[in-house]
Amino acid sequence: MRYAALEVFVGLFVLLTLLAFTALAFQVSGLTTFYEPDKGYEISAYFEEIGGLKPRSRVTIGGVQVGRVESITLDAQSFSAHIKMNIFSEYKNLIPIDSSASIMTAGLIGDNYIVIDPGADFETLQQGGGIDETHSAIILERLLGQLIFNQNSEDE
């Protein structure tokens, strides 16, 4: 009886640890590689400049998250960034084929994320589709540089 009670307590302890580990793996670090019921579909876009965009950044329409960035690679021919995005399956047949995508920053110093501005076409993006019109991330230093350059040329 004494050992049985000990075993129950130690078993509960181990169970609690497993629960904590699962919470940390899935809820906190967003690990979804082994377990992904919602596979969604993949679309891609080319951006000239992505700023601080990272894999697993948010993809939104009107502020609502509709997917996340799957991979970021450099296209060797155009030197632009090739972004693959995974869109959740509940948003299937929703995004018009003439939509545009831009990279925004949350707040002044927040994370970068992708905003899709829906177009008007009746045809929608499917698995493997691409967004043609993209707007690069705004880099603050570059903007400041342009401002100073314009100022100088006005003075002359």
């Binding site: 580990f21 906190v28 998250q65």
Partner: peptide, 29 residues
Amino acid sequence: NAVAIYGGYWISVDWLGIDGGSFWSSMQS
């Protein structure tokens, strides 16, 4: 770690009024 993160969640979302979705998604990204 798990208990502390849920404690932080409770304070941030239920008390300070931060959006629960952005709390988890900023964490996961």
